[in-house]
Design a protein around this nucleic acid. Structure first.
Lengths: 197, 197
DNA sequence: CAAGAAACAGGTCGTTCGGTCGGTTATGCG
DNA sequence: CGCATAACCGACCGAACGACCTGTTTCTTG
């Protein structure tokens, strides 16, 4: 039945990467349940069979997106910059500035990838929930370390507050389609970190 | 074809109320997209035809849930208690205490209804987004008024921070299935409101 | 360079989705 | 009491869903 012996090159890593790129993009802009396998297939330019060979289920894709896209994204935009900053206050200020600048540049506020998936999936599946909890825990740990290094008391609770305020501000920003809540919270959080130091 | 002339009583308001109760419960525990019309039909003990007569589409149910269940819930658990409290700090403290107590009593942390639906739907549909934005705005306004009445400066930004921290803490609580983030944020927020007063 | 393994193609399966339709029953009103 | 109208019933529809399976091509390795 070989009708069209279509040209092909085996590149499993590239295929996987493309699938995860497309899937994380779609999950971010539409949500997990609103995204169909067909959307991913079409967006990634892959066939259903090829996709199935690497990711047996949709859940496997979701988990991989969480581990290989969302978590690194949190590390890159939040954890590393704050850890390397001169002070926690300065780091938080820079992160909020970078994020609000990016939001203003685009047209739409699509929310924090971690929070989007957390609220949609953490109750639906224990594996998803474990993944998110782990990411949050890591985030808290590193941020608390940085705050403690500045000599602040209650570094742990401060870290939780910063992460919570950021997450919630992003949710409000998504609802209002404006970066204003983030700007406000960024300002108050850096001020809090500075005056306590 | 009248096989079973099943007993029936016309009670449109009761039917609507039951549908909204069940739908808001299901949306809260599973999410909007993960909840099918069949789930609502089964849970409410209604027929598909009866449901369709009052709610032409699923979206209509979602909007009604938002307006007639979620918004009143926010008003009842947050806005009214804070508005009536002796001080903003005391009000916020009481609200956080009530919510964490309720969470600890149940087994699962299901998140804030408003945030759950916001993150899932605000990008998908402008009508949904408008509804959420309105609810957030009202929340901000009343909270800021209460804070301002205590004589605090920057009451508006404080209100945004409080709401954001609450929302984000609930998201973290959902991921970790623990009321701890809420307790921590509640403590720090009331402390902030008190020392600034 | 054979031959087994891995990568990929793409059609198809059963299910569930949201929504519809013709028909029946209750109820308010004149 | 009659009857128009709203409330309600439940079988049914096409489309889309996630998953899968067989067959073919490419790679790897002894």
């Amino acid at each position: 039945m070989a009708r069209k012996p279509k040209l092909r090159t085996n590149a499993p890593d590239a295929l996987k990467a493309k699938v995860l790129d497309v899937a994380s993009e779609l999950f971010q802009s539409q949500g997990y349940h609103a995204t169909g396998m067909a959307d991913i297939v079409k967006g990634a330019g892959v066939t259903a069979g090829g996709l199935h060979h690497h990711f047996p289920t949709k859940k496997a894709i979701g988990l991989a997106v969480l581990r290989e896209r969302v978590r690194p994204a949190v590390a890159q935009t939040w954890i590393t910059p704050v850890a390397l900053a001169k002070s926690a206050a300065e780091g938080v200020e820079a992160v909020f500035a970078a994020i609000t600048a990016e939001l203003d540049a685009k047209k739409a506020v699509r929310g924090c990838p971690l929070n989007n998936l957390t609220l949609e999936l953490s109750l639906a599946d224990p594996d998803f929930r474990a993944e998110m909890a782990k990411t949050f825990a890591q985030w808290e740990t590193v941020l608390a370390q940085r705050i403690r290094a500045d000599g602040l008391r209650d570094a742990d609770s401060a870290a939780v507050l910063v992460i919570a305020a950021y997450s919630g501000a992003m949710a409000m920003a998504k609802a209002e389609q404006s970066s204003e809540p983030l700007k406000i919270c960024g300002r108050r959080l850096t001020q809090m970190l500075r005056t306590a130091a």
